[in-house]
Nucleic acid binder design. Structure first.
Lengths: 347, 347
DNA sequence: CAGATTGATGGAAGCGCTCTCACGCCGACA
DNA sequence: TGTCGGCGTGAGAGCGCTTCCATCAATCTG
């Protein structure tokens, strides 16, 4: 049983001061006070300082509800993550995205509201978005079934996706990397190194990035006349990588190369390979995907495909701001970044 | 260079429907429509259904700004984390807290707004809290210098802290575990196992949990007449645990027991110990703190002090809701949970 | 059956703010 | 000296909603 202790309550300050009181104290009208507070256009120097003074002595801060009732802006933006909490907090991908987005928004003094929606909360989240608590949304790690692109497009809510949505891709703005090209390059690198039995550890079936990377691998092995049936699905976690690798090794012992759809999974892949007595890269060469720090920290340092997550997220944030600023901006902009091969010791 | 493609903009729906239109369509007054929508007290069955019908056909959803302008509630609550993003996303402590808080809030249909404030953003964050965008705040992982308890108490904003604040502890509500007792128990366990040179890997100096745990260890070793100078500070991360352990080993080779202020650090501790050729627990016994899953997953499974994070966070959320519900509720409630020793293989 | 109670309703006030608009003042220009 | 343009200003409307209050009909009480 926890111990509980009480104390008499604090005396909270009574009513928050309103613009009216500020105006009265400054000896100007409410209109002038409002102008002075919002950038001071068309306000005399004297009025300006008088208002500033009044604001300070009263400890005034504008009521955001009243303000947004008339401006129809809320000055906050949602980062929508339709993903169970656990994964969000273990994948560096999210941290990088979050930081980049936050950087752009903070520069404009916009507040970031993090919306984590587990599948069962999805309707609640959609309702929240529909109620216009926020000026726009950035969507990350969306899945085939959430149909977020269509929902948001239908709401007419400014939004930008990181990663191409499955459906509705012609109705919303998004940034992406060319996942198919990246994965193809990874596979071709292995082929050029003489590998001939190349498997693929794919990501979740319901994400476009995973599907595109799988397609890139398949295209490369098919073109080279190699086996194209050595695929196992992970879930973008280390554990998922481990399980997929075990399945692949059980399916075919001769595997000498693995193209893995994320670095985090590759960590698990390497662990299982070594536990199975295969040396990396001598017996099996491994290429990851992402290059967000994990890749260079593990042993052996991982050859991987870098996607510029920070740039992508920043770009998405800016695309969102464009939409918010001028409601006539083209909605369905798409920006595709090129992936880069980063060679390290695992190939 | 990224590729960029445009598409003609979507045709967003014009103006969102207002309560007025709903009322007109339902053939009732705005007042009745409002009552019908908000729980339907004192509304006839026929009016009720007419309004519901109108809401559905119009796709109406109430404007939150207008609503909170008059109700003076925003139906959202902030989770304040004065911590650089990286740590938040690597420590299971946060994930557990977040989930528990979210669970309580979701049941009441309150929205959780995550406020990550790096030190340089602190004033921005305080301003945001002062502007009453939210009905209350739950504060986690606060530090000596942020003085959040005092700031929030001064604002008169309902709030609840997870972990005792450094200052202002008599002005705000908080939950905590008895960290000193927990750490003392951990140390006494080692002593009872015959360990005689017991070091402490402490947490950051500016957090009460770390200070209390250090005090608990010191109290136990002093009482037993053992050395009390074997302390090194980590930062609650694996890396921090590694560095602290190296420092301790350099300071004294005879260490045969380590009390570590968090499981995450203990992971690093064990790693360094084994790299230095010490077996756990044969040469050095190790006790962690938290028991959030990491402890049982590592080798050897970690003896640790469990704190019921989920319960604590839930309790904090409920304390916050109490304050929000009745503004006269006692502000400075405190609830202290007892820690539990969980023995595994590391001692 | 008169009077009191209850329940459903709409009118209207007002939450705190922004912004349009009209007004008065000033210096500039002819 | 008369007119004009621009600037600073305040009055006032109105954003979309909740809620107080008066009203009225229906029901209950003695």
């Amino acid at each position: 049983m926890p111990r509980v202790t009480h104390q008499p309550p604090d005396q909270g300050p009574g009513q928050a001061p309103t613009l009216d009181e500020v105006a009265r104290l400054a000896g100007v009208s409410r209109a002038t006070a409002s102008r002075a507070i919002n950038g001071g256009n068309r306000v005399s120097q004297s009025a300006q300082t008088a208002v500033a003074e009044a604001v300070r002595t009263l400890g005034y801060s504008p009521n955001p509800a009243a303000r947004s009732l008339v401006t129809r802006r809320t000055d906050s933006v949602a980062l929508v993550v339709p993903e169970p909490d656990e994964r969000v907090f273990s994948d560096p991908f999210f941290v990088h995205t979050l930081r980049a987005v936050n950087r752009v928004l903070a520069a404009r003094d916009l507040q970031l509201v993090l919306l984590l929606a587990r599948p069962e909360d999805e309707s609640r989240m959609l309702r929240y978005l529909g109620e216009r608590h926020i000026d726009g949304a950035i969507v990350v790690s969306h899945h085939q079934n959430d149909r977020l692109a269509e929902h948001l497009a239908a709401l007419g809510l400014p939004c930008a996706f990181v990663g191409r949505p499955w459906t509705g891709e012609d109705r919303v703005a998004y940034v992406d990397t060319d996942n198919e090209a990246g994965s193809r390059a990874a596979t071709e690198l292995l082929i050029s190194r003489g590998r001939r039995v190349i498997g693929h550890v794919a990501g979740p079936d319901d994400m476009t990035a995973a599907a595109d990377r799988r397609a890139g691998w398949r295209s490369a092995v098919t073109t080279a006349g190699l086996r194209d049936d050595l695929v196992a699905c992970g879930d973008f976690t280390e554990i998922g990588g481990e399980e997929a690798t075990r399945a692949l090794l059980a399916q075919c012992e001769e595997i000498d190369g693995l193209v893995v759809a994320s670095d985090l999974m590759a960590v698990g892949v390497v662990r299982v390979l070594e536990a199975a007595g295969r040396r990396v890269p001598d017996d099996v060469a491994v290429v990851g995907y992402d290059d967000l720090g994990v890749a260079e920290r593990i042993t052996p340092p991982l050859t991987t495909i870098r996607q510029p997550i920070g740039d992508m997220a920043e770009q998405a944030a800016r695309m969102l701001l464009d939409q918010i600023d001028e409601r006539r901006a083209p909605r369905a902009v798409r920006v595709v970044f090129p992936p880069t091969v980063v060679e390290r010791a695992s190939t």
